[in-house]
């Protein structure tokens, strides 16, 4: 088991770095070459979404990506520090929107893109867990790694 963690300021230009790091670590973990494109795309979408949400509310907390090669699976968790309205309290006017500030600043296109990003992740990843809470949101995804197959342990 090995962990690589990447933390970056919520800026669009850093999403590519996250993709490159995730693909490199996934390859090293033994994720099949044919799946690497999916890993790259899924982590990019999750990071783009986290960056978008963070920027929408004008927060300056970083986005954290944790890459974990353990238990025969390669998993990626992308976390943002944007509190989700449903968990913050039902008293807010925009509580019906899953995206804080979306109604207030007219960022409906960003929201649509964020939804499209989630749609892409849903289409790509079988093992997926999307969470939202007062501490922020997280997207956790995983893929089988080479260590998943008995008798196929990398030396």
């Amino acid at each position: 088991m090995a962990i690589v963690e990447l933390r970056f300021t919520a800026l669009p230009e850093h999403v590519r770095t996250a993709r490159l790091v995730a693909a490199a670590v996934a390859r090293r973990a033994g994720v099949a070459e044919s799946v690497l494109d999916e890993v790259r795309l899924a982590v990019g979408e999750a990071c783009s979404r986290a960056v978008g949400l963070t920027r929408q509310v004008g927060a300056d907390e970083p986005v954290t990506v944790t890459l974990d090669d353990g238990e025969g699976r390669f998993s990626i968790e992308v976390r943002d520090a944007v509190p989700q309205p449903a968990a913050v309290g039902a008293g807010e006017g925009s509580a019906s929107s899953p995206f804080p500030g979306a109604a207030a600043n007219g960022a409906s296109l960003d929201v649509a893109e964020s939804e499209l990003g989630l749609a892409v992740i849903l289409g790509l990843v079988d093992e997926l867990d999307v969470r939202a809470g007062a501490e922020g949101g997280s997207i956790r995804m995983s893929w089988p790694s080479a260590k998943d197959k008995p008798g196929d342990e990398p030396v």
Binding site: R19, L41, G44, E45, S48, L109, E113, L116, G117, V120
Partner: peptide, 9 residues
């Protein structure tokens, strides 16, 4: 080489 949902949008 790479296209994501932002590009689709």
């Amino acid at each position: 080489d790479f296209l994501d949902s932002t590009g689709l949008g």
